[in-house]
């Protein structure tokens, strides 16, 4: 067995930090967009707007039924086809948001669906419209239930951002691969890569624990 090459790690860390910054940027952007898409689509799927509900169903069906990597390639190569030219960075953000949005839509739908029907009836009984009942009563109440699965989804999203290495975005995984190609120390660098992800995801889990406590 070869000795663990600490030198490779000290060499890699600055590059990987740069990659980590890109991963964080992309993840945070995709979390924000994915959450917005997910909440809007989730609300649509519990609303009474038939055609839109159907569209959301198709969207969720697609996102759940295809690998994230396939979605990434599809979005990335489909965008130019429909006349949208964006950098790899933004293509990646769009693909990840698209993916997360579909899962978050399901989380929102399930959380709202689990709220006791008496809440909706009470909202209607004081003259609220369906939309008011949804936005003023059901959505706020479902936030607490949404928090744990949403955390999982955001963790999945950060991990999934490593797929963006496949479209040559210099995020964390890609930066590690480039160092391996240069230094031929795959074990050391992949170990360091795992530690980087662990740190980021632990921080995310901590943050969402804090938010969950605040919501409780």
């Amino acid at each position: 067995m070869n000795a663990f090459d600490w030198g490779a790690i000290w060499y890699a860390v600055p590059y990987m930090l740069q990659g980590a910054v890109v991963t964080l940027e992309i993840s945070i952007l995709a979390m924000v967009f994915g959450t917005v898409i997910g909440i809007v689509c989730g609300l649509v799927s519990v609303s009474r707007v038939g055609p839109l509900r159907w569209l959301v169903r198709v969207y969720v069906y697609f996102v759940r039924g295809t690998p994230a990597l396939v979605q990434l390639f599809l979005v990335y190569f489909a965008l130019p086809e429909i006349g949208i030219y964006v950098s790899a960075f933004w293509g990646g953000v769009i693909a990840l948001s698209f993916n997360a949005g579909g899962f978050i839509a399901e989380i929102v739908r399930a959380a709202i669906g689990s709220i006791e029907p008496g809440q909706t009836e009470a909202a209607l009984s004081i003259g609220m419209t369906d939309r008011q009942g949804l936005l003023l009563i059901l959505l706020p109440q479902s936030l607490r239930q949404m928090a744990p699965p949403l955390t999982n989804e955001l963790i999945t999203l950060v991990k999934g951002s490593s797929l963006l290495s496949a479209i040559s975005i210099a995020e964390l995984t890609r930066s590690a691969q480039m160092i391996i190609a240069e230094r031929f120390t795959p074990f050391e660098i992949y170990a360091a890569l795992a530690v980087f992800y662990l740190i980021m995801i632990s921080a995310l889990a901590r943050a969402s624990e804090y938010v969950e406590k605040r919501l409780a």
């Binding site: 008496g118 809440q119 009836e121 009470a122 009984s125 009563i137 109440q141």
Partner: peptide
Amino acid sequence: FQRFNLFT
């Protein structure tokens, strides 16, 4: 309502 149904 029988079960109050206050907004929790």
